[in-house]
Design a protein around this nucleic acid. Sequence first.
DNA 1: GAAACGTGTCAATAAGGCTGACATAAAAGC
DNA 2: GCTTTTATGTCAGCCTTATTGACACGTTTC
Lengths: 177, 177
Amino acid sequence: MTDIKGGVNQLFLREEELRQGMELLFYAYREFTTEADEILAGIGFGRAHHRVIYFVGRHPGITVSELLAILRITKQSLSRVLGELVRQDYITQATGERDRRQRLLTLTAKGVNLERRLSETQRQRVAEAYGNAGAEAVEGFRKVMLGMLGENDRAKFDVAKFGMVEKPPHRFGDRRR
Amino acid sequence: MTDIKGGVNQLFLREEELRQGMELLFYAYREFTTEADEILAGIGFGRAHHRVIYFVGRHPGITVSELLAILRITKQSLSRVLGELVRQDYITQATGERDRRQRLLTLTAKGVNLERRLSETQRQRVAEAYGNAGAEAVEGFRKVMLGMLGENDRAKFDVAKFGMVEKPPHRFGDRRR
DNA sequence: GAAACGTGTCAATAAGGCTGACATAAAAGC
DNA sequence: GCTTTTATGTCAGCCTTATTGACACGTTTC
């Protein structure tokens, strides 16, 4: 095997490796969503409802604009979905205290319940994959995944833990800077 | 710290860990698709076109039903997208030789070109993430991702390498079993 | 020769995005 | 105090991508 041939083969293997990574993402994401989709379909909701319920559950008291920033959709798109969820009593809106223009979003008991049902299968799937792969592999998984995010999203995982939304964590009572 | 308290905390940490995994998938997938989406929008195509171009490029001579099995959409959905791609000369259809009902799909030069443009940024993103994380982390990433797939999809990665479609690799000339 | 298969197509429907325009109340700036 | 900006909501219309159901045509298989 000559140098050139080896080099070409290297390149080929590398491209193959990268494409496998891309496809893993594609298939894993699909696998990840389909189960919840079925539950959602049963109650007349779609994936968009799930995302809203998920992130409101994750960040109780989140504002509409924070939610929009996470989801990266327009307020018109969110409005339809969020409206349904509020009307059907999955989510409550409370007027913000420091800023009364804000509508702080929180899951109702009904909402918490649905959130549980929806993410249960997903958490199980991740738990299984984590368990089978082992702690070291999980560390690698995280490293790689974090590396694929943009600056903005990555920041959510650096310090952000336990339910805060953006860089300034949910503080109560101080807003002026 | 009592046993009970420790146990609860353990559970909490575990749930947090799993949710972070779920969110990594969500954000990574979105990050992964947006760049290509912009290119696609520029030529009047959508994400669906990308998927078709990608998998036809990956499996030259793939049949319509094999493609449907990969994408898991209906033939009516595929038809529109595939039709556009064929009409605009990104993909050619050739009548199968052993089975003349089949339309074997292949990228044209134009199609190969577009495929390159589209997946280039994605490959780069994966390459960077892989490079920064290191070989060991990549191994972990793969392990975890494979663990999240269903049996069916996982099989594509076990033996499947270098462009074959399903379990029976693309053979020429034997179809009867 | 009949049944099954691979593919294509017509029609209607739904989900979930988008843009643009406009409205209202509250906060912030001067 | 008056003006501007911000947070939110809503109406209207459009697009993409998916669905189901029905039907057609040529080909293969039994």
